[in-house]
Design a protein around this nucleic acid. Sequence first.
DNA 1: ACAATAATTGCAAGGGCTTGCAAATTGTAA
DNA 2: TTACAATTTGCAAGCCCTTGCAATTATTGT
Lengths: 336, 336
Amino acid sequence: MTERVSRITASDVALEAGVSISAVSRVFTPGASVSSKMRDRVLAAAEKLDYMPNVLARSLMTQRTALVGIILANFQNPMHLTTLDLFTSALQARGLRALVFNVSKGVDVVESARQVMQYGVDGLVVAAASMSQALVDQCARQGIPLVAYARQPRNAKVNVVCADNEAGGRLAARKLIERGYRKLAYLGGPATTSTNAFREKGFCDAVGEAGVELVARVNATEYTYDAGRKAAIQMLDEHRNIDGVFCGNDLVAFGVMDVARYRHGLTIPDDLGIIGFDDIELASADAYQLTTIRQPMSDMVQQTVDIISQAMAGQDSGNVKRLLFPCTLIERGTLR
Amino acid sequence: MTERVSRITASDVALEAGVSISAVSRVFTPGASVSSKMRDRVLAAAEKLDYMPNVLARSLMTQRTALVGIILANFQNPMHLTTLDLFTSALQARGLRALVFNVSKGVDVVESARQVMQYGVDGLVVAAASMSQALVDQCARQGIPLVAYARQPRNAKVNVVCADNEAGGRLAARKLIERGYRKLAYLGGPATTSTNAFREKGFCDAVGEAGVELVARVNATEYTYDAGRKAAIQMLDEHRNIDGVFCGNDLVAFGVMDVARYRHGLTIPDDLGIIGFDDIELASADAYQLTTIRQPMSDMVQQTVDIISQAMAGQDSGNVKRLLFPCTLIERGTLR
DNA sequence: ACAATAATTGCAAGGGCTTGCAAATTGTAA
DNA sequence: TTACAATTTGCAAGCCCTTGCAATTATTGT
């Protein structure tokens, strides 16, 4: 049977050390006024009793939880594990914690957000597909900094930290054309995502401006290998003359490569040039050697956390930030 | 300038509805005694003011936070994104939230655990490399259910939910031998991990029992493609006669495959048979078609969450559970 | 040594909620 | 209608901590 022992509280420590509760509190409050004798006594007692301040009670007083909500979808894309890795690390480095919400499977973003807010998060980063006006208003009303990460919502009144997907799309187009590909195709991610919209726009615009033929424009249903593969089967069956494809992300690109190589017997990069997006770990695997476009994730996450912690410190200018980060092309073996 | 409006509280709602604060509280407490008239009045007022109960204050009273800490390392292995996906979903389905801690980069597990505990988590799942006795004691003392997920710590006094890695290793050995491979090698993950230890033991035992030669036993420094690749280069250079390899996980297996194919010109599965572990999405990619061992992650996560929520409800038998889940071999194209 | 200033300490009032208890209400049976 | 039980409601104490204020103690200059 578990013997439920109630937690040690500040008053226990105060009793043990023979001081007031306030004294204990101050010892555990950075920047408070305590003499070194007092600190030593309290710390000794705390050590002895294995005391830890109750963050909940503290938060109730200070109106700060040091909790940052992260609303995330797309738990299939390995890139987002890196996202989580970077976020949790960056937050922890600032003494903050990540409260992760998963809105993958038909979970309502707004409802999730409400729940996050009940925990009194000090900040919220939304890396999910959609973001409602209600949520934005809610955050504004409560003074909670909100950042849209890796997506560019139409809504103007929200902080955005995102890769410049449109420029990335243009970059891909220009590179393919520069290497002599002339029958291009776009095989993007889900049509509903903002990343897809911007990558597609940038790519198609640049192809058009160069006067090169855009043979096909297709969307995979998800940002996954299988979805990419399925879309590629259909696309390459229908359009035999395609010689260059820009893909929504690396996983989709892998699918395209495999269909091209193993189903159509095409040689990459001679018969078909491929460019992906994200530069996941396996993009550099010998089996793929994928030329791809990398977004500066580390910087992006850092900026996001900066925005939030500045806002928490009350140092925000008050006007929303829209930060677009430039992408770089990582050249490997899928372009001739 | 952000106009910091303090949150709507129960007393605001009480005032608006012309009732007591307790009444408001009871309306938002499942199972409390409230008349339907009262409920309607309060709900109307709450709706009007957009009231949400403050979870912190509630937790302070009830000693329940509905927060479950998840301590995770290995943010490189895409499999763990699935882990997080499953955990967050399973927890959310039970009205619980995940407080994720990242102990990847030299962060102290014990220290992290202390921090998690300060948030008054109602449960803790440790999916990190190590787990100290101090942590186990701490949880026991405070009556917090603790589960070691996907690892088998030496420590006996802790709940364990894990794949039967040893059986998995044996399974791999028998399959390779059954298919006629006779010069076997083990290329595992980091020597410090319990998963490696058990997979290695199972594999080597079974190979020994069958009287088959074990040519090499190597550990990759990490469970990644690159580490697998590096280890494979060394191993295959040194032992030219190896004809079958059991790998620590799929990523490592990819590395081995690529070294074998692209560096040594070996044909898989004829010259070299390969078995991986985990069955990640790309294991089924045409470029790898990896035969691998799958652990029933969904069941494992479900069980973990069950254990925790039962313990939270006070229905735990009090004695620790050690659940080992059987693995299954997924046959694809890397065995002749 | 003394006054004047600075640093430390304790008191007590919250922060927003839950909950045992007693009062008030409603329902039921005779 | 009255007596009684069953519900519903409000009061007030308490969860554990922070912090303004005033009282105390330590420090400094002369």
